[in-house]
Nucleic acid binder design. Structure first.
Lengths: 347, 347
DNA sequence: CTTCAGCGTCGAACCGGTTCGACGATCAAG
DNA sequence: CTTGATCGTCGAACCGGTTCGACGCTGAAG
């Protein structure tokens, strides 16, 4: 492999001149620049990443700490990751994917050893053990997900509170007075997944304010448990006219459950989900939904991170906590409720 | 951040002695070793990855080139990735995840710049443009998936031919004489996904040998198209008594299709799939299946790669093409066919 | 009492880039 | 014709590790 010394020799100049010719950081005569570029081309010169990192203390690599939980839906995770890797690449960065079980130690390892210029954290818990380490690190960090303590980092998340309210408002506006909300499984909450209760509590509060009855329940993450749960719910609350779904598995299971019960959406039941357009497409879900925009969140986190990495001024700016406003995508799965007489329980 | 010079000064020795004390590559007195380790501990010393890479020409990072296609099932992809990252970490390596659309250029970038010690390629196409670059690279490479030309790399894949034969044999052994095989969508093949026809052609050949009629068809990757296709297939071949599924989306859709048709498995139809146990669990699929073991394949590829990276002797060994034998996991979804009178078309 | 081997340590070089200060040449201004 | 600024280039130092050769010291063998 050719080094910059080889290029310099080939072009008949010093190493520093070759470096300047390639980087453009000092004026170089047209003639010399041409010779250096030609030599680099001829020798297929590619700078050694380690040497450059050592000299510049920049690696052009971002760390991405993510965990693949079997009870969280893989497609959503993939979208976050893709959002991060694609945006990073656009900005000239590669992505080190770290899925260690002990995220805190892994984070320390990659930051202390200066393998990365910055870090994106996913699967954020309310009290995330990685955050103290990130705050102490020399590199800037961003999270996708809202932790309890946002100090010292940039935070990006969907506005789950507003999403909960928007769902309730939408159905209340259509005249619904009794709704069901199915959330993620309880162990997602136990793991610290605050977004579950952020959406739920905001929805409950709003429902209370506008006199709507809202039944809430933790869902399941897998078939057929989640399907059975849906049946049970619909049996238990026969007079509910609307269903809010903050649970990918439940949303994916609903079409066949509805079919089994002979339940028509929206005539018999109005439905709103909370997931990504990509997820909706993969499962062809026919429901209106609040877009959770995982790729956009990953992309925003990376952009902010790179700003801080590349500009000392940006590094001094105050930290941001930025929420994406929930966007309700209508698929026609909601309508005013039928007459006040309840659905007849099926099955 | 403390450097090894700081550690040396703190311990009152030279930099080289500190280095040897930490690496153990030369004998060091117990007393000095103790002092050096204490100093390193006190200063929270972590070696600078770039400097070490420059000195040793080893980065302890593996490249993972993967693409996230929307028409390939995300959960399977996640399992491959997890298999790679977990095994890499076990062996002391981090993983650089590269999802560039132009995989060939990305591969050249990370190998020429010496960012990685070795590379794992996924989503292998029959005539993969990344392979010539991998062969020319200084680092060893492994693939998960069988390309047309295996020279110069280590190849790991499920034995799809044997899987196709095993599925046919199993049902033939039970007495079935007319089967349907639903494959991946046609554009997976167009993209170079050879495993689709490897399984299909071997199944056809075996079916021919043992006098079984086998109808084959390209599937769809999404609901509801794949569900409709299943209905059509079952209508079109009413006398078929067995269904082979080499298509995750079709497998996931089958339970509700069967339910809609009032079709009992295995009484009315024997079913065998080809997917991973993890996938089966996520969708609680009640079918016998050939385990595709994505995590195991990823893990094997990494182990071989690391062997070659770390041992000059291993680097000189001949390249391997290793197939995992398909393992049929019985879930009781196959049984001898009913009387020769055909299923009555439903719907 | 010398000789020599081996152990433990040190200094220096090297990996391959970047960057700073200096210096010679050119050219315009005084 | 000198002075001084500007431009283009070079040499050297540095980033933070690893590793090679050398060297002093100790202790056993002759």
């Amino acid at each position: 492999m050719a080094t910059i010394g080889d290029v310099a020799r080939e072009a008949g100049v010093s190493r520093s001149t070759a470096s300047y010719a390639l980087s453009g950081k000092r004026p170089i005569s047209e003639e010399v620049r041409r010779r250096v570029l030609a030599a680099a081309e001829a020798l297929a010169y590619t700078p050694n990443a380690g040497a450059r990192a050592l000299a510049t203390s920049r690696t052009k690599v971002l760390g991405l700490l993510a965990r693949f939980y079997t009870d969280e839906f893989a497609p959503a995770m993939m979208q976050y990751i893709q959002g991060v890797t694609d945006t990073a690449r656009d900005l000239g960065y590669d992505t080190l994917l770290v899925t260690d079980e002990d995220g805190a130690r892994a984070l320390r390892r990659i930051t202390d050893s200066r393998m990365v210029d910055g870090v994106v954290l996913m699967n954020i818990a309310q009290d995330d053990p990685r955050l103290p380490i990130l705050r102490a690190a020399a590199q800037p960090g961003a999270t996708v997900g809202l932790p309890g303590d946002c100090s010292g980092i940039d935070v990006f998340d969907l506005d789950f509170e507003e999403a909960g309210r928007a769902m309730v408002d939408h159905l209340h506006g259509l005249g619904h007075r009794e709704l069901i909300l199915i959330s993620q499984p309880e162990h997602v909450v136990e793991r610290g997944g605050a977004y579950v209760w952020r959406l739920r509590d905001a929805a409950l509060e709003r429902a209370r304010q506008c006199g709507v009855t809202l039944h809430t329940v933790y869902g399941e993450s897998r078939q057929p448990a989640v399907g059975r749960l849906l049946h049970t719910l619909l049996d238990t609350y026969p007079s509910a006219t609307g269903l809010l779904i903050n649970n990918e598995a439940a949303a994916a299971a609903l079409p066949s459950v509805a079919h089994e019960r002979g339940l028509r959406v929206p005539e018999d039941l109005s439905v709103i989900g909370r997931y990504s357009a990509e997820f909706a497409a993969a499962f062809s879900l026919p429901y209106s939904f609040v877009e959770s925009a995982p790729d956009r969140l990953g992309s925003m986190a990376v952009r902010q991170l790179v700003r801080r990495v590349e500009s000392a001024a940006a590094r001094r700016e105050p930290f941001v906590v930025r929420f994406i406003s929930p966007e309700l995508v209508s698929r026609g799965s909601t309508t005013p409720p039928r007459e006040p007489h309840p659905r007849t329980p099926a099955r």
